[in-house]
Simulated scan of single mutants.
Amino acid sequence: MKNIKLIFTVIFLIVFCAINAQEKKIKFNKGTLRICSSKQFQIEGYDGDEVIIKSLHEKREENSPWVVRGYAKSKNLAKVSSTTIKSKDSISNSNFVFFNVDNDRKKGLKKLGKKNQNADLGIYFTIEERDGELLFKDQNQVRFIMASNERYLVKIPNTIKLNWSTNNCSEESKNSQVRFFNSKASSLSYFKGEVEITSTLNNMKLKDVSGPVTVNTIGGNVTIEFEKEYPKGIFSIYSNNGFIDVQIPNKSSLLIDAIGKSVYSDVDFKVLEEKEMDDFGHINTRMKLKYNTGKYKMKLNSGYGTVYLRKL
């Protein structure tokens, strides 16, 4: 029995060390963290002075196979499919997959180059620091949309500003933009600094983020939850055709301007204003609501989507 426990302990330590080895720390506690990536991030605020990045996915194998077409006799070519065979001795017009078999040679070595310095940690985006700004951005590729299982946990100091865009931040680079689609929402939790988020086709979840917060998203849903915190700054949430779902803590003091196809709530608001708006044949509802003293403003606009305001 002791041997079994020892084995499990050793396995746990190996796994624990392996997970923690997938971590990058950057000293950065003043300025702006700017994210220009549609990959999935779980961002958490904390009272520290480092930005900590941890990959939550399996590390890629560098030598992924690629397909070539034509004539070849190398033993490193494995035939994967055939289109046309002209003769018994010819393998032209066929597809082959090539494997680069140098895994043993690179053991104990690291691939050099600025773009590859984080690959050993399972981090597949570019990291740059300049002029008080820490920048995360996708590497430029031909424009397309692809599914990705990449997930990152990023811990950030509460003393910095977060400017997060799931789109390419540079107007000049839009033609080389690559977009990653994830079915799960990216998230921001426990952060006390200023937040600005711009998103397309990505769902966002905020938890215990006190504000100020600005979110502008197209085709994405926004969920805001509170457990230990409550709104202490201005919230401006715009979600074109997505829903907005907000928990209203008992301690909060809010003046809410809500626009959407419909507004649902189980909170005892004081209704200050209610009207319907005709937007090219689409009828939207606008409501001004007050909760407690109404000290902090919250502007919610879901376009043709729905607004949900619920008790904590």
Results as ranks from 00 to 15, higher is better:
G281V: 08
Y304N: 13
F99A: 10
L289I: 03
N76D: 11
F16T: 14
N203D: 15
K106L: 12
G220C: 04
L254S: 07
T293M: 12
D120K: 13
T198N: 04
A18V: 10
N116M: 09
G70C: 09
F180C: 05
L33G: 00
Q22E: 04
A78N: 14
R60N: 14
S170A: 11
A147P: 02
W164V: 03
T214I: 12
A72D: 04
A78L: 11
K27I: 09
D279I: 15
F41A: 05
S81E: 09
F8I: 15
N29H: 03
L300E: 01
K270W: 03
I43Y: 01
K2R: 11
E171N: 13
T166I: 00
N216T: 04
S37W: 01
N118Y: 09
R105I: 12
Y296L: 05
M298K: 08
V15D: 02
K299S: 12
K311V: 11
A119V: 10
N202K: 15
F98G: 00
L312H: 12
K106G: 01
K297E: 11
T306G: 00
S183Y: 08
I52M: 04
S236C: 07
T84E: 10
E61P: 03
S64G: 13
V267E: 08
I123L: 13
L272C: 07
L6P: 01
L272E: 12
K73G: 09
T285H: 08
S239K: 01
Q247Y: 07
D266H: 14
F181T: 06
E61N: 14
N63V: 04
K73M: 11
S38L: 05
I127T: 09
N175W: 01
S187F: 05
N3R: 07
F8Q: 14
F269S: 06
L134T: 00
G132V: 08
N168L: 08
A72S: 07
K25H: 13
Y230S: 15
D47M: 06
N284E: 11
S165W: 01
E227I: 10
V271E: 14
S183T: 10
E276S: 15
Q139F: 06
L77F: 13
L309P: 02
T285E: 14
N93Q: 14
N29M: 01
V142Y: 14
K184G: 08
D102K: 13
F16H: 06
Y190S: 10
Y308Q: 08
Y230M: 06
D266N: 15
S187I: 05
I19G: 09
R69N: 14
F226H: 08
N163V: 07
E128D: 10
V263N: 03
S262P: 02
V80W: 02
I14T: 13
I218G: 00
S94H: 03
S74Q: 09
K228L: 12
G260N: 06
T223V: 14
G260L: 05
V15Q: 07
L77Q: 02
V68E: 03
E50I: 05
K2P: 00
T159A: 09
S199N: 05
L162W: 00
G233F: 04
D104R: 05
Q22N: 13
K25T: 13
T214M: 06
G193I: 00
E196M: 08
D89A: 08
N95V: 09
